[in-house]
Design a protein around this nucleic acid. Structure first.
Lengths: 337, 337
DNA sequence: GAGCGCTCTTACAACGTTGTAAAAACGAAG
DNA sequence: CTTCGTTTTTACAACGTTGTAAGAGCGCTC
């Protein structure tokens, strides 16, 4: 900075009042003579004063900042290539900016990183944590809870604990996919699931399989994928090799579905005529296929915003019981099924 | 927090010394009796003390935080769907964590948001800014410079100004694409450019066109795209309608290239036999096509890390002349050309 | 016109840290 | 046994806010 930033003191001197009065004007507390208020505002204008957040934080013990933590065992820094995290970020940022709160991005992929996150929050460098946790065995939710850090999760924790979270009814999502495929006359249906150590994957899978059973199909060929394009393409290959008679497949996310559609094409299967494909998420890859992907929409941005809302709420009134918000999926029918 | 966090005072009391001594132990300043040092460390252990970053910031005027600003006129919150920003984020986060610095994510898509960013930094809420600016007319670099905020840019500023930045030789990248297409015998070459109000797009385009001219092709059919899958698919359509004889196309990013390949397929053109395709970036879509996309690699993660390095360096020793680091592109030959 | 209750303003003490100047401890030298 | 450096430790003042308790101003009532 060229010149030291103007302080309350400076404004007070210019306006001819005390620091406290200026402070009250800035914070909009009542009991300030309107005339004086104008004088102070002028002085603020004149000096170009802007309150120092750090000093303010020291006394209010609020930073106006929350940690956005991407957690999970395998999450290297390449998580950001997954469109899912981009959508979460977008939803969070969009919501927080309305409340003048800023997110600090943190990765918790190692034990060291995890303790760093806990320290960061214990120190009060952020008011709370938004935790996007992929693996169900992630220890971070418990760690943060132990440290009494206000926290909100995306997706329910691996084992029950008193913490706020948003989630979606993934089971219902799987069911919708099954219902749609059966309703459109498919009878040889397989699935490519997500990694089964992720709760959401389990739920999508069981929701799908349960519904198929209810429709009279007790057995559904399944291959476990890894939520990547590659793994989707590969899983489809395996599925097709073993069950060439397949006429439909439910793929547990859109990226894998894109890969699966590619495999189908190169095997000479036309989508949706020969094989119907239903994806999951309704993220950008769903629109980057032809035919456009029929998929189960997960409103990630809205869910992320709700998670941020939950956290801010619990910061507003501490000591509340944790809350959960569960979103409903929605089937988006496009060309692929 | 259940109990108030332990403070320097508490540690001092337990260790039977003064606050200042504890502070010196914590910060590793010399001139502390080794024996006493051990006592203090024990006391720290015992109390579970961890320094309060906010209080520290107030006096040191350093926060250990930088703003990661995604700027540019059109950048809504959907920027995060573009894999590019994910890669930048990954590179920045990866580098900063080594230096115990944390990024605060900010969007600067409106005038209001821009002044908020400037305020945030003027207030000293962050030590500096990493600015990813897409549009060349973006006013933010100048605003930050005026406010004497330490800053490093991804991509050179729209008009020359004394600021550090990283960039790539996009012109050379365009040339590489041209050279490769000509070397592999293509003679009817077109291009889908990026938005031409982005400097990088201009450079890729002019680099490509210049090189083609040098190879004896004075005219290159071109359509301007918008860096999205859709716009790539659409541009390819237009190009093909007007120039059905095309046997190669250079597409200014991989996402558009993916769309373009799709259009080519549905027009019955086989890649690379009938039409060769070269993309740009070497981002995830390049591996989510078949054939795999031949593309010009932009080392986004390394560039982002370098940008962060530039900023930290300028924070370390202020008053240095601004620096720039220019990366070289690299042609990655795969199946599509 | 003294006393009382308003409203509005001001001084002052936090918040938890760092840095500096002064004080204490301790040898070594005279 | 004093005196002088040197090293180690301490007390104290910042840093820029906010909140609280005390104070000033002022119009009312009795």
């Amino acid at each position: 900075m060229t010149k030291a930033a103007p302080t309350l003191e400076d404004v007070a001197r210019v306006a001819g009042v005390s620091r406290a009065t200026v402070s009250r004007v800035v914070n909009g507390t009542r009991n300030v003579d309107p005339e004086l208020q104008a004088t102070v505002r002028n002085a603020i204008e004149e000096t170009g004063y802007t309150p120092n957040r750090v000093a303010r934080s020291l006394v209010t013990r609020r930073t106006g900042t929350v940690a956005l933590v991407i957690s999970g065992a395998g999450s290297g820094s390449d998580v950001f290539t997954d469109p899912f995290f981009g959508r979460v970020t977008a939803g969070v940022v969009d919501f927080l900016r309305l409340h003048a709160v800023h997110p600090v991005l943190m990765l918790a992929d190692t034990d060291a990183a995890r303790t760093e996150v806990v320290e960061f929050l214990r120190q009060g460098s952020a008011d709370g944590a938004l935790l996007v946790t992929t693996h169900s065995a992630d220890p971070l939710p418990a760690l943060l809870l132990d440290a009494s850090v206000p926290v909100a999760l995306y997706a329910r924790p691996g084992r029950p604990m008193p913490v706020s979270y948003v989630d979606m009814d993934h089971h219902a999502g799987g069911r919708m996919a099954a219902d749609h495929l059966v309703a459109t006359g498919r009878t040889n249906v397989g699935t490519v699931s997500g990694p089964l150590d992720v709760l959401a994957s389990q739920d999508r899978y069981s929701g799908f399989v349960d519904a198929m059973a209810r429709h009279g199909f007790p057995y559904v060929p399944a291959i476990e994928g890894g939520f990547t394009w590659e793994s989707g393409a590969r899983a489809m290959q395996l599925l097709l090799d073993e069950h060439p008679e397949l006429d439909a497949v439910f793929v547990a996310n859109d990226l894998m579905a894109q890969g699966a559609m590619h495999t189908l094409n190169s095997y000479g299967r036309s989508v949706p005529v020969d094989v119907a494909v239903v994806g999951f998420d309704d993220s950008s890859p769903a629109l980057a296929c032809r035919p456009l992907l029929t998929t189960v929409r997960q409103p990630v941005e809205r869910m992320a915003a709700a998670m941020a809302g939950l956290l801010l709420e619990s910061l507003e009134k501490p000591g509340q019981r944790p809350k959960s918000v569960i979103f409903e999926p929605e089937l988006v029918v496009r060309g692929s099924a």
